[in-house]
């Protein structure tokens, strides 16, 4: 098992390396640079621009800049924000904490809601529950989450005054953004769960479980669900990535001070170090999640243990 983890880890390194290179190059090969953006077009003093470029190291050869960037990044130094002049790493950590809170809450909604919806649909195939689950799923993947967020605000904050419309605070502030963020993932997880469980439900050992006199709920939760979980875990891992990406939109709708909103602002401002660091951190998280999913596979299915041992 350790060998499996190690080999996956080794595969992840070139991917991250590639991500860093692409992000680095993308932001530099394209016209327009942060210094002129910072000063605006009306500032004419070339020396000032040059001085600032020099200070930021933007006048050095591209390769040197990249190697520097990478070496620093590995040590946790992502440079200094052009806009705020604060270390990017510190800022990222602060915003990431807020995003993580939102993402974890969203993921809980997504997993619990998705599996529940899929389970009901699979257990009551072709019933009204199944169709309802399908309708919810279709809506979940079809409604743009930024619009869903606005509608939830309109209903629960503006019309009913039940929940705050945005910003950070206690757990009340978390509910609407988390539901919004989770909606597409609920849909996808529900569909995958349904398809996977429907294959399991017809298997012989499920009949055995019923023949022992176990109740339907017990059979579904104890025998059917675990056996149908592998595809669900895969898709949940992938969905976590999409969910992270979705925070960009959700945070904008709900004025949630997270990484996504920070990143969008940085892009508008061409704050290179922040964009680089932000994208890199999200990619790192995404690759890590995939790694965890691979390992979870081994933990869940005992049959793989003996295969790995061979």
């Amino acid at each position: 098992m350790l060998r499996v983890i190690l080999s996956r880890l080794l595969q992840a390194i070139p991917v991250l390396f590639g991500v860093s290179l692409i992000v680095f190059l993308l932001l530099r090969l394209v016209p327009g640079d942060p210094v002129s953006t910072f000063y605006g077009f009306d500032v004419g003093r070339v020396e000032d621009l040059q001085a600032m470029r020099h200070q930021l190291g933007l006048d050095r050869p591209m390769l040197v800049q990249y190697v520097d960037f990478l070496a620093d990044a590995i040590q946790g130094d992502m440079g200094t924000s052009i806009k705020t002049r604060r270390p990017v790493a510190t800022e990222l950590v602060r915003y990431l904490t807020n995003t993580a809170q939102l993402a974890v809450a969203g993921m809980i909604f997504a997993v619990v809601g998705g599996i529940l919806l899929g389970l009901i649909a699979a257990a009551r195939r072709n019933s009204i529950w199944d169709n309802l689950s399908l309708a919810i799923s279709l809506a979940g993947i079809s409604l743009p989450i930024f619009w869903l967020g606005l509608m939830l605000v309109w209903i629960f904050a503006v019309q009913l005054s039940l929940l705050p419309s945005g910003g950070r605070g206690d757990w009340h502030n978390l509910i609407l953004p988390a539901i919004t963020l989770a909606a597409p993932s609920v849909a996808v997880i529900a569909r995958v769960t349904r398809a996977s469980l429907m294959e399991v439900i017809n298997q012989d050992f499920v009949r055995t479980a019923y023949s022992k006199g176990l109740s339907e709920a017990f059979v579904l939760l104890r025998h059917v669900l675990p056996n149908g979980l592998l595809p669900v875990i895969t898709v949940t891992g992938i969905q976590f990535g999409y969910l992270l990406a979705g925070t960009v939109l959700t945070e904008t709708v709900f004025a949630w001070p997270g990484l996504g909103r920070y990143l969008v602002d940085a892009i508008k401002f061409r704050d290179y170090p922040v964009v680089q660091g932000g994208v890199l951190v999200i990619a790192l998280i995404f690759v890590t999640i995939n790694l965890v999913v691979d390992v979870l596979y081994f933990l869940i299915d005992p049959r793989l243990h003996s295969e790995a041992a061979k």
Partner: peptide, 21 residues
């Protein structure tokens, strides 16, 4: 591997990164 790199930026994020450039 190159495709893996692109996939490491999930969902709308890759599009955002391109727009950033």
């Amino acid at each position: 591997r190159l495709m893996d790199v692109l996939l490491a930026m999930p969902g709308i994020l890759l599009a955002i990164a391109v727009i950033a450039a």
